[in-house]
Amino acid sequence: MSTSMHMPWYAKAVFVAGRPLVLVAALAMSVPGEIQMARAAGWHGWVAWLMPVCISAYAAAAAVIAEVRRRMALPGRATATIGAGAALGLALAAQVVAHLIEQNYMNTSAALVALVSAVPPLVVAHMLHMAATPAAEMTATTQIRQLEELVATMAAELADAFDREGRALVSRAHGVKNSYEELANDIDELVASADAMADELAGELAAAERAEPKPRRQGSARKAIPLTVVKQAVAAMQAEGEKITGPTLAGRLGCSERSGYRYLGEVQAA
């Protein structure tokens, strides 16, 4: 399927009509300067109008002929290419010099007249040379050889492209691996630092615990109250009519409520 089938209509119109339109416009813009050059060299009347044909049209024709001979591998490629380059340089120089003369930046001279006068003979000579060069037809063997060379070149370029992409992928993979290894090393260092800080903090806490005296338990320094004393306290409370409970007994004996309940239980068991 051709590429033009995928193009919208306006793109097709530009593709088809744009190139010849630009070519015609460029040639038309070149005409006044080249006519002025011809008049400066001594041509007058309708003859001066032929100078654009000798310069611009000749440059376009030489460029096309050179490209066709290059693509078809025909004889005369080198001279056609040289002629196309010379024709383009001549057309460019003619435009520049013509506008410089028109804007009074320079005046005509004998050398300029001689160069402009030599243009028609040079164009005729080169066109005859390209016309006389035999356009040898390529045989089927030559076409097959050129096709094989083209396929081999494309295969080599494709292999080089795959090789470059493969090397780039391997390089990126190594870079990612190195980044992961550096990240793992950083994590290991952070874990080691955290472990060291934890050990240091645990040591400081242990030292603080050893330095701080432990509080003595309530009642651990007190001696146990004999059961006889407990019974006497209970009897006194009964005589006074006081309610005997663990807390009231503890208050009477001067001990903890827990001990009061324990002593009350011992008395009741006895």
Rank of each mutant, 00 (worst) to 15 (best):
A208I: 14
D186W: 00
E212A: 12
I187G: 11
E182V: 12
A196W: 02
D186K: 04
R210A: 12
A206Q: 05
D188Q: 12
E212D: 11
S193N: 13
D195Q: 13
E204R: 13
V191Q: 11
E200H: 01
E209V: 05
E182F: 04
I187Y: 13
D186C: 03
R210S: 09
E209W: 02
A208K: 15
A194P: 00
G203I: 02
G203S: 15
D186S: 09
A192E: 14
P213Q: 03
L190V: 12
D195Y: 01
A202N: 07
E204C: 04
L201C: 04
A202H: 04
D195E: 11
I187W: 14
E181L: 06
A198Y: 01
A198K: 05
E209I: 01
M197A: 15
A202I: 00
V191F: 06
E182R: 14
L205N: 06
A184D: 04
D188P: 01
L201Y: 02
A206H: 01
E212L: 11
L183F: 10
P213D: 05
L201G: 02
A196D: 04
L183Y: 06
D188V: 06
A211E: 08
A206V: 00
E181F: 02
P213W: 02
E182Q: 14
A184I: 02
G203A: 15
D195C: 06
E204S: 12
G203L: 12
D188F: 03
L190A: 13
L201M: 07
M197Q: 13
V191E: 11
E209S: 07
E181P: 00
A198Q: 05
E181T: 07
I187V: 15
E200L: 01
E204D: 13
A207E: 09
D188C: 06
A194S: 14
L190K: 14
A207R: 05
L201R: 04
S193A: 15
A211I: 02
A194D: 13
A198W: 00
A202L: 05
E181Q: 09
D195G: 04
D195M: 10
D186V: 01
D195N: 08
R210P: 01
D195F: 05
R210K: 12
I187L: 15
R210E: 10
N185F: 01
E212M: 13
L183P: 00
V191T: 12
D186M: 03
D199T: 06
N185T: 10
A208Q: 15
E189C: 02
L201I: 04
L183R: 15
D188E: 14
S193R: 13
E189R: 06
V191H: 09
L201S: 10
V191M: 08
S193K: 12
E189W: 03
N185E: 13
